[in-house]
């Protein structure tokens, strides 16, 4: 499902990703760990084309990206199969919660309003926010907003979900409610890549752990091998 081969990305002359290859992360839950600035988030953003790279290649959910600028058409097809959840949630503030969730299905998948809305309400129920469908994002707590963001990404029925430090902007109580949703999703068989500092979470949910250091893969393997 995910393969990365000799990825090189430079920023201002510095190699932020230096010949990164991921082999074992075929499916399941991959956790990307490592110190700040080690390249975890950059690698994740490469996986759905938010960043370009100078050398190497990668394949996600059957879509291949190569070095250089990505053609918009390639990215649009890839992103239908690859969902992303951001550290800062990035909900659309001008839309209600349910409209945040239905926007992708309506505009990209051309679903009718009633079909998209029905599925959105199911997803909101799954993340425990069925009562907040008509609320504005700004009236929700951070944990609630992040759960809406997860529902929004899931509404596209992605084959792979990418999480970029989904709980680092949250306090411990809210962190727990978001991690519960992600663990629940992992158990249901969703393929995902999660950038995290939370080794406890990685041990609990990941099937494969990749540790990056200074843009290189330091170690990778099953959680007990890497995290000890």
């Amino acid at each position: 499902m995910i393969a990365v081969e000799s990825l090189v990305k430079t920023r201002g002359g510095v190699r932020v990703l230096d010949e990164v290859s991921l082999a074992g992360a075929a499916g399941g839950v991959t956790a990307l760990v490592g110190a700040s600035g080690s390249g975890k988030t950059t690698l994740l953003r490469c996986l759905n084309g938010l960043e370009t790279f100078e050398a190497g290649s990668l394949a996600v959910a059957g879509h291949r990206l190569v070095a250089g600028p990505h053609p918009p058409a390639t990215l649009e097809v890839l992103r239908r199969d690859v969902g992303m959840v951001f550290q800062q949630f990035n909900l659309f503030p001008h839309l209600s919660v349910v409209d945040n969730v239905t926007l992708g299905p309506r505009v990209v998948l051309r679903e009718t309003v009633s079909v998209a809305r029905g599925r959105a309400l199911d997803l909101l129920d799954r993340v425990g926010l069925a009562d907040f469908a008509t609320a504005r994002p700004a009236t929700l707590s951070g944990g609630q907003q992040q759960r809406v963001a997860i529902a929004r990404a899931l509404a596209m029925r992605p084959r792979v979900m990418l999480f970029d430090e989904p709980t680092s902007a949250l306090d411990p109580a809210m962190t727990a409610e978001v991690l519960d949703v992600i663990v629940d999703l992992a158990r249901s068989g969703q393929t995902m890549v999660v950038v995290t500092h939370d080794h406890g979470f990685a041990r609990r949910a990941a099937t494969w752990v990749v540790e990056l250091a200074a843009g290189r893969v330091a170690r990778q393997g099953p959680p007990p091998d890497v995290l000890g």
Binding site: N48, L50, P72, L75, E76, R79, R80, V82, G83, M84, F86, Q88, N90, L91, F92, P93, H94, L103, G104, V107, V108, A149, R152, A153, M156
Partner: peptide
């Protein structure tokens, strides 16, 4: 409009013009 808005819209598979129409311009 914060850069994350365009990224979030494009991550859902919206084209740039769809992102403008539904996310950036309304805000």
């Amino acid at each position: 409009v914060p850069a994350g808005q365009l990224e979030a819209a494009m991550s859902l598979g919206l084209t740039k013009w769809q992102a403008l129409r539904h996310v950036l311009v309304p805000q």
